[in-house]
Design a protein around this nucleic acid. Structure first.
Lengths: 156, 156
DNA sequence: CCTAAAGTCCGTAGTCGCTCCGGAGTCAAG
DNA sequence: CTTGACTCCGGAGCGACTACGGACTTTAGG
């Protein structure tokens, strides 16, 4: 399988595959006589695993751990489970942080009369430090700092 | 006001302040005789605005627009409102994407018996391409690609 | 007054996960 | 034989910081 086919089969961008090889997440692919990379079914599966993991918001480092665990055939399910649960908790934390953001932002937008500029609530709200602006909200919407899903093209 | 005081007053990391100056988000601060930066109340307010904007998930570029709008004293409230609403929609999109992730992940974790490794649902689920794994979920959880909140220290 | 610690300066490099670039070689179709 | 698509590679760029190292200044304590 050539790299473009592996890309199509895994849903992973071609350049990203090369990138994964470069950073050692994928082992160096076999080469044909012409120097082109040649992928086996197993390698494409590994790639699918990575891609899917990314879609679920795992970092490449976490995915590497998961792959390592997947390779030991005994006594690893509990570890996998723990990792997944930790990750889920992290995602939920991020959802909450975003929800707080959305709430505050919505409240701020509400306050804007919509045309009379003199006392634009949005701008003055932005000027106000978080704790004064939202005494009920958690001091700072800090949570996990995990990198997670990077979604390429598609500009909103 | 020295930089550390400005940092404390604005809740913005000291190095980040210098960074903002470097990229032109803040104009170059006045200097004392010893070369130390000296901040006025207005500059600290601008910094608060930026920090708060970041907390609400605006990108630095968006914040720059907001600041520019804030400086024109007429006819900008509608623009501010539009920007804020667009941003809110983006945040909501990201929340939904994360919720899909969490749902799928939770479902995957559910399937794991918890010890018997032979058929660990989590790992095999990860092996499965997204569309086969979750026929009901949106094809790919792609949404906005805005960078938004980077939260430094604090590891979950 | 001297010393040590803390604060500030600066530029540069590293982080994460890609993505794009340019220039060169290879391959398949017309 | 030419054209276009594909592949190779290393390196730079993105966003928003964070960290580092070496030089300088200021401040507090003895």
């Amino acid at each position: 399988m050539k790299i473009s086919e592996a890309a199509a089969a895994s849903g992973c961008h071609l350049e990203t595959i090369r990138y994964y090889e470069r950073i050692g997440l994928l082992s160096k692919a076999a080469r044909r006589d012409n120097g082109y990379r040649d992928y086996t079914h197993a390698e494409v599966e590994r790639l699918c695993f990575i891609t899917r993991g990314r879609e679920l918001g795992f970092s490449l480092e976490e995915i590497q751990s998961l792959l390592a665990l997947a390779e030991q055939t005994d006594m690893s399910c509990a570890d996998v489970d723990r990792l997944a649960r930790e990750h889920l908790a992290d995602i939920q934390g991020r959802i909450q942080a975003l929800q707080r953001m959305a709430q505050e932002l919505a409240r701020t937008i509400e306050g804007c009369a919509g045309g009379a500029r003199a006392r634009c609530a949005i701008l003055s709200d932005l000027q106000t430090p978080a704790d004064r602006a939202a005494p009920n909200a958690t001091p700072a919407p800090k949570g996990g700092r995990r990198p997670a899903v990077h979604r390429p093209g598609i500009d909103a």
